[in-house]
Design a protein around this nucleic acid. Structure first.
Lengths: 191, 191
DNA sequence: CGTACCATTGATCAGGTTCAATGCTCGTGG
DNA sequence: CCACGAGCATTGAACCTGATCAATGGTACG
């Protein structure tokens, strides 16, 4: 992990670079292979992670056994089930590597220990929460104010990396539509 | 403001009751009349509030001049544009009293002063963020996993207070549908 | 080479939207 | 005190978009 990556993560969490090594002591770098699960909906989400490279998807399985993408994540995004993390209830989501990926993970109780030694680290926790909020809000805005076609175009514009790395079947449910509709949208906008 | 209300707000924010009077020093109790605005989309959201009684709506005005409800809030809920609050950008929403209401409000810079004197108050800030996240997430889940009819039934079940206090025209856009569709849904489920 | 999985395409269906007309209710002024 | 008007809720008809069911194509991998 190089200094550029370090400082961009420190900045993401509003933490001074000089302090950041304290965090790295409780964090662990992990290589995950394609299809490997990082969290399942049988567990409580006891930790969180940041993607250093690769791509993940966060999904639920409904009663009919169909998978629905909740989030698609690439470089710099962070992952986990934040609701489960704060409420300590069973996770609603599974997180899986879509391609081989590298992630930086930490345990909740380690962060809590850090906070006990110095309340400064509450900043980190608050920033996590702010990011989780902004992610959820932006996604909600997409559903409230845009049609499926606009949502696809926005994704295309804002996260071309996701379109490239992640197969269509995962993208369609992320957009809240069926694979067939996504295929038709793509056909439609080709003109 | 009685002790019951105090302790329920303290609990909501994860703050010890013994500490809570420090917060009340920076907070102010306000009476607002029906239709009065508490925040407009011309301002930055520099403070936040908690509803003690009454009902508010948080809405946007689109290019066509139509109002769209983003949130409907009643007792115990808190209000403001949290994205504007953390980013210090202009608010995207207006907040208006639907009926005469009583609210407890505080200024962002006052809370920041409190945090400077004691990092303990970061807990409060984090809890605000967690609540904002959970609100946005629950709302997003409604759109991802439920039909308009199910969304209405969920609202009916979880917040009958909203249905009672707030007119239908505000509820329909909150559910992401037109007033006509809401009327038809209501007709449909009467059977 | 064959199979399995995914993307595409076609036909039909369902529900929400739109445009328009009618009812209903509450507040205001004559 | 009543009459009127404004705004909201309801209802009807036509339409549109995405869902569903079904079939076909294409491609990667054993």
């Amino acid at each position: 992990m190089d200094i550029t990556q370090k400082s961009s993560i420190a900045q993401l969490f509003g933490i001074e670079l000089s302090r950041f090594d304290d965090f790295l002591q409780i964090a662990e770098c992990k290589q995950v292979l394609k299809n490997q699960l990082l969290l399942t909906d049988r567990d409580v989400c006891n930790g969180f992670g940041i993607i250093l490279s690769g791509a993940l998807r966060t999904f639920t399985v409904n009663d009919a056994g169909e998978e629905m993408s909740y989030l698609l994540q690439v470089n710099g995004d962070f992952f986990g089930d934040y609701e489960s993390y704060i409420t300590r209830k069973k996770a609603a989501f599974n997180v899986q590597a879509v391609i081989d990926s590298e992630v930086l993970v930490f345990e909740k109780n380690e962060l809590e220990r850090l906070i006990e030694t110095d309340l400064y680290w509450l900043k980190f926790a608050k920033q996590m929460s702010d990011i989780a909020f902004l992610d959820a809000k932006r996604r909600l805005d997409e559903f409230l104010f845009h049609t499926p076609e606009q949502r696809y175009l926005n994704l295309l514009r804002k996260s071309p990396e996701i379109i490239q790395k992640i197969p269509q079947k995962y993208i369609s449910s992320y957009l809240g539509i069926t694979p067939q509709s996504l295929s038709r949208i793509r056909h439609r906008i080709k003109d």
